[in-house]
Design a protein around this nucleic acid. Structure first.
Lengths: 125, 125
DNA sequence: CTCTATGCAAAAACTTTGCAGGGAT
DNA sequence: ATCCCTGCAAAGTTTTTGCATAGAG
């Protein structure tokens, strides 16, 4: 999947800022927040959030709020679930979690909240 | 399930403010945010959030962030999923959504994000 | 009396908006 | 010349913290 395919038929001009955001999200194996992306490239938060809003309007990406109060974004290549640890705030993709359709509902994302293996082990020591 | 049972062995004194919060959450059939609760009883946000924090520390309630950037709280009687509509921000419980354990992970909550039946119908008109 | 709970006000954290400058078409 | 993208600064929203008062044991 490349950016041209992704932007096909979408009303989004591919500016350098947008290219950067999309490339970083494409290369990432987990959802990223503004801080994650700002660490990789210099970009004002207004630019970031305005472009993110546009991407979401065009269904190019989806997002969710994690436990750390930040929004995390990703280009979802195939619908899959996400795990958010409520102790260490780690976010990871859960590729093999089954999902089911709900009558007349459109499912965009599944977020599983709980305690990750590492924190769980640490907690029980 | 009553408040005495819920607070059994928990290090939480049952003050009037706490009783109000817990009773409202117990009676609700869906997760509630601070604004929802403030509509029902007068309570300062500091008091609310401090008590909510204490409840969460004692695993009396759990919470998640919805699309409207607010945290929603509930007393979860049995693990079940929640649906959050990304268009109208409605939050509802999905009792019959199947869930699966993840090896070594503790699952506290499942949030399904998407478009609810009503918004979906409205959108396709 | 001491310890905790509460309310008000201020701060903090993340996101959004206003506005002006700059580039592309 | 117009449109829209970008960055800075300011505002907005939700949640948290500081502090003084009130209340329970």
């Amino acid at each position: 999947m490349n950016l041209d395919q992704i932007l096909e038929n979408k009303n989004v001009k591919l500016t350098p800022a947008r290219r950067s955001i999309l490339e970083i999200l494409l290369l990432s194996n987990k959802p990223l927040c503004y801080d994650d992306i700002k660490d990789k490239i210099s970009m004002d938060k207004a630019t970031f959030y305005r472009n993110i809003t546009k991407f979401e309007e065009q269904n190019l990406i989806n997002s969710f709020e994690s436990n750390d109060k930040k929004r995390y974004f990703e280009i979802q290549k195939a619908l899959h679930a996400h795990f958010v640890c409520t102790l260490c705030n780690k976010v990871e993709c859960v590729k093999d979690y089954p999902y089911f359709s709900l009558d007349k509902y459109v499912i965009d994302n599944i977020i599983i909240k709980g305690i990750c293996a590492k924190c769980n082990t640490a907690n029980n020591n």
